[in-house]
Design a protein around this nucleic acid. Structure first.
Length: 138
DNA sequence: GCCAACGTTGGC
DNA sequence: GCCAACGTTGGC
């Protein structure tokens, strides 16, 4: 299984919106960045991703699961970009803030820190474990 | 194919 | 609200 992180502005689409969605599942539409889309194309059914609130909140708040692999985003007129379907699995007991991640030496190489504008990125398994521990998750 | 101008994201 | 980083567009 691979691990990922997806970003959303909480004012636009928040974790609670995700949980209220039918089947707790939504199409992750609207990504208009080639690198982010390439990452979505690499997602496989059953992969896990952190759900991160950008801007105001700046913390990881939940875990989602990939339930449908990349397919064309109908909201994209150019036909270049894809989306996946994501389902809310569970909220983090203790959300992990960007500040905490930056303060953790082991996490300093994360794309979240290094490439702040990227909205869909891979997370390596050791970083996933570290963050889950920080979030007080089993 | 280069690069200047411009737009967007997201942290601060 | 500002601005750094960086992606995209379009003229040449």
């Amino acid at each position: 299984m691979n691990y990922w992180l997806v970003k959303s502005e909480p004012d636009v689409w928040s974790w609670s919106d995700q949980c209220k969605a039918k089947g707790r599942t939504t199409a992750w539409e609207g990504v208009r960045n080639a690198q982010a889309c390439n990452n979505m194309k690499l997602m496989r059914k059953g992969d896990r991703a952190f759900f991160y609130h950008s801007n105001k909140d700046r913390q990881i708040v939940g875990v989602v699961e990939v339930v449908k692999e990349a397919y064309p985003d109908p909201t994209d007129e150019t036909g270049r970009f894809v989306m996946v379907d994501l389902r809310a699995l569970e909220a983090l007991k203790a959300p992990v803030t960007l500040a905490e991640i930056k303060a953790a030496p082991r996490l300093s190489e994360m794309a979240l820190v290094r490439q702040s504008r990227l909205s869909v990125m891979p997370i390596d398994p050791s970083a996933w474990k570290t963050i889950m521990k920080m979030a007080e998750m089993k």
